[in-house]
């Protein structure tokens, strides 16, 4: 796949370069001013990059290596059992969230895009309503649903005589992240489904493929770029989301919470910096992997 997508990008570049680099027609001086114009436009980007990205990141890296353990702090996030467990927890939770989100959103997105029924617009609006909710609100909703005074608790108490409460466990957090990711992923999947060529499905059927085989052999493969794009974003979000974890967390160890406690409560700057870098590297590596798997089409599909 990578091999087929790259040439297309290169073509794109060839197409763009001449228009950008050609001196403007007219007096030779206008060529000069054209170039300096580009530089002037570039300046804010350079300043912003340096001020808000390069400097703080460099500082963060330096702080991480500046504690009592020195650069060993970076090693500690892997060797220290508590840190390592948290790291693994977080990655597992983010992976589970991503997989569950993709499965639910794919089925829902396919259905919503392919069927017209009364109330469809309302349903889509409802599904995407939580897009703007901050993590705190999502956490709040989970508590309302599965907390000590929650709906599920009340129902299970009435039915089975036992109150089921999971809002404060890792499962509550999982549910919160699902709630958070599904609207985003559904929108991406719906857009991708809309672009599918119906002719491909008809061709597969004409060759004898059952509806299931059509999904397996034609529809799902065509949606892979959308899966990778939206899955990578769901994963990164679940790795770093703090508001929900903070609202729910009484006994959950995930990386953002650990960074928070190390930073504010233990004033352990070096470890929190090292953990932050670790978090960033993992999320970034997943995005990069996803990109390379689809030959750089992730951005385009997302």
């Amino acid at each position: 796949m990578a091999g087929t997508a790259r040439p297309r990008r290169r073509l794109c570049n060839c197409y763009l370069m001449p228009t950008q680099c050609l001196p403007a027609t007219g007096a030779p001086t206008s060529a000069m001013s054209h170039r300096s114009f580009i530089w002037i436009c570039l300046l804010p980007l350079v300043l912003v990059t340096v001020a808000f990205f390069v400097l703080p990141m460099a500082q963060l890296v330096a702080v991480g290596a500046d504690g009592p353990r020195g650069a060993g702090a970076y090693l500690a996030i892997l060797t220290e059992p508590r840190y390592r467990a948290t790291l693994i927890n977080t990655v597992l939770l983010a992976t589970a969230t991503t997989i569950a989100t993709l499965m639910i959103a794919t089925i829902a997105g396919l259905f919503l895009q392919r069927h017209r029924f009364p109330g469809r617009a309302v349903l889509i609006a409802m599904l995407t309503f939580p897009l703007a909710f901050p993590g705190v609100v999502v956490g709040f909703l989970i508590i309302l649903l599965a907390g000590r005074q929650g709906l599920i608790g009340a129902i299970t108490l009435a039915l089975a005589g036992e109150k089921i409460v999971f809002a404060y466990s890792i499962f509550g957090l999982f549910l919160g992240y699902l709630y958070f990711s599904i609207p985003r992923v559904i929108l991406t999947i719906m857009a991708a489904v809309q672009k599918l060529d119906r002719g491909l499905e008809e061709a597969a059927r004409s060759l004898g493929a059952s509806p299931w085989a059509v999904q397996r052999d034609v529809v799902l493969p065509a949606l892979v770029p959308a899966f990778v794009a939206s899955g990578a974003i769901a994963f990164a979000t679940a790795m770093g989301a703090f508001g929900t974890a903070f609202t729910l967390a009484t006994n959950i160890d995930v990386l953002p919470m650990l960074i928070y406690t190390e930073f504010t409560l233990a004033a352990n700057f070096a470890i929190s910096a090292a953990l932050s870098i670790g978090l960033g590297v993992i999320a970034w590596a997943i995005l990069a992997l996803a990109r390379s798997m689809t030959g750089g089409t992730v951005a385009a599909a997302g």
């Binding site: 060529d197 491909l200 061709a203 597969a204 059927r205 004409s206 060759l207 059952s210 052999d217 493969p221």
Partner: peptide, 28 residues
């Protein structure tokens, strides 16, 4: 259609982009 045993050639060809030429031909 999947049980009518017809062959179809579409104007857009509708070849499966995730398969090679041989896989396309052999799909049915």
């Amino acid at each position: 259609i999947e049980q009518r045993h017809v062959g179809m050639v579409f104007q857009s060809y509708a070849l499966f982009p995730n398969m090679t030429v041989a896989e396309n031909i052999g799909y049915g």
